[in-house]
């Protein structure tokens, strides 16, 4: 009987990063701009993607990957817009990872797409550690989550390209200062683009659409 030491050198997150890089190269090559849309449950991820499809669905070919623990509720909402939708039920998982996306990409008509929205699982923590191969990382928080939500989850803001403070029309009702959330995001990441939005009043929706258009046109 003897003991030996064996070098392994397997990094769980690095394995995901490598897969994400493959996805990224594929999407770049095919001219697809992918948005990884992250945010808590009820922050408005599905609604903001729906608004985008509604506004620019004629101008661009859009596809969606809808990540959820179970059920097809979000995917069914997107299907009403007659866009290709892949429903990703993660089962027990709290985030999408690059391997799941790799499989979803195989099922999408990527040659025909300009834009791919990837709606991540509702969570502000786990998706932070897992790149998917996206072009842009978008984080959505709603004022109803409280105005300290940004400072409670700094890493996701450190690594995103766009932070959206959503449902600002009800900020007064829930006694929240939306500008504090904006300031926190900018303090954590001075380079992040931040916008305040509301489906009800239409505030900031043009900015959201513009962000998608500019990001996509830069890719084409």
């Amino acid at each position: 009987m003897c003991e030996i030491s064996v070098e392994v050198g397997h990094d769980v997150l690095k394995a995901n990063e490598e897969c994400a890089l493959r996805n990224h190269h594929l999407l770049e090559y095919l001219g697809v701009t992918a948005f990884n849309v992250m945010g808590a449950i009820g922050s408005g991820k599905t609604t903001l993607i729906e608004l985008a499809i509604d506004r620019i669905g004629e101008k661009y070919h859009i596809g969606v990957i809808a990540g959820d623990i179970v059920a097809d509720i979000d995917a069914d909402r997107f299907r009403r817009y007659d866009v290709p939708v892949i429903s990703m039920n993660t089962g027990k998982e709290c985030h999408l990872d690059a391997h799941l996306i790799e499989h979803a990409l195989e099922q999408l008509p990527l040659d025909d797409l300009d834009i791919l929205f990837i709606e991540n699982v509702g969570n502000l923590i786990c998706p932070t550690d897992y790149s998917l191969g996206e072009s842009k990382r978008v984080v959505i928080v709603s004022v109803s989550e409280g105005d300290d939500i940004v400072r409670k989850h700094p890493m996701i803001f450190k690594t995103c390209d766009l932070a959206i403070v959503n449902k600002v029309d009800i900020a007064g009702a829930v006694d929240v200062d939306a500008d504090k959330m904006v300031d926190d995001a900018l303090r954590i990441n001075p380079h992040v683009k931040v916008m305040k939005t509301s489906k009800k009043t239409g505030e900031g929706i043009d900015d959201w659409i513009k962000f998608i258009e500019v990001s996509t046109d830069a890719h084409r």
């Binding site: 030996i4 030491s5 064996v6 050198g9 769980v12």
Partner: peptide, 8 residues
Amino acid sequence: INVRNIKI
């Protein structure tokens, strides 16, 4: 999150 080595 790296499994560096194992002793067996």
